[in-house]
Amino acid sequence: MPEDSTADDRPLYERDPDAWHAHLAEGNAKQPRKRVGADVLIRNEQGHVLLVNPRYKPDWDLPGGMAEANEPPHLAAERELREELGIERLRNAASAHRTGNCRYLVNGMPPVR
């Protein structure tokens, strides 16, 4: 199939904001009522923070994302690093977990059960 040189390769949120909002609404409707996400704070020796510029939303963000059903936040953070950046393991990483409006940090180890 020949490539369409006129294809618009901009992200959906730029190309069609109404379709993007509909996509978000559909995704939110399928999510469990209690959602958990995990972000990972990665700093180098100079203190610079790693941010990602995802193509599916308009803003820069920490690497991370939503946990899958029954997935602990620290494992969600590790999975997201693998999926987004191809990173298998980090030393001295702190993951910021969010549940609703709450946020807590886990410094390089899973939460205490």
Score class of each variant (00 low, 15 high):
53 N>Y: 13
35 R>H: 07
50 L>M: 05
41 L>F: 07
49 V>C: 07
58 P>F: 07
44 N>P: 11
59 D>I: 13
54 P>M: 15
48 H>K: 05
37 G>M: 03
59 D>Q: 15
59 D>T: 11
46 Q>W: 09
46 Q>L: 10
26 E>M: 09
28 N>V: 04
39 D>L: 03
43 R>G: 10
24 L>A: 03
56 Y>Q: 07
23 H>E: 11
32 P>W: 02
37 G>T: 10
36 V>L: 04
51 L>N: 01
26 E>D: 09
24 L>F: 11
24 L>S: 00
41 L>Q: 14
30 K>H: 04
61 D>H: 11
34 K>H: 14
57 K>G: 14
56 Y>W: 14
49 V>R: 09
48 H>W: 15
34 K>Y: 07
31 Q>F: 10
57 K>S: 03
39 D>R: 07
52 V>W: 02
38 A>Y: 00
55 R>P: 06
36 V>T: 07
24 L>V: 11
30 K>V: 09
33 R>H: 13
46 Q>G: 03
45 E>Y: 04
30 K>A: 07
50 L>N: 02
23 H>T: 09
25 A>L: 06
55 R>Y: 07
45 E>Q: 12
24 L>P: 00
61 D>F: 12
35 R>Q: 11
51 L>Y: 01
47 G>V: 01
33 R>C: 03
54 P>I: 05
41 L>S: 12
54 P>D: 07
47 G>H: 00
54 P>Y: 12
57 K>H: 11
46 Q>E: 05
39 D>E: 11
40 V>Y: 00
33 R>F: 13
46 Q>A: 15
26 E>N: 04
29 A>K: 00
38 A>Q: 00
21 H>I: 10
40 V>S: 01
26 E>S: 13
25 A>Q: 06
38 A>C: 08
43 R>W: 02
49 V>K: 08
56 Y>A: 05
22 A>F: 09
47 G>W: 03
50 L>G: 04
34 K>F: 13
30 K>S: 09
40 V>C: 02
34 K>C: 05
33 R>N: 13
31 Q>D: 06
44 N>H: 15
24 L>H: 03
55 R>I: 14
23 H>I: 10
56 Y>C: 11
54 P>L: 11
35 R>F: 02
27 G>A: 12
24 L>K: 02
44 N>G: 13
22 A>V: 10
55 R>E: 15
43 R>T: 10
36 V>G: 00
56 Y>D: 13
50 L>T: 01
28 N>W: 06
48 H>A: 06
39 D>S: 12
40 V>G: 00
47 G>K: 00
26 E>V: 05
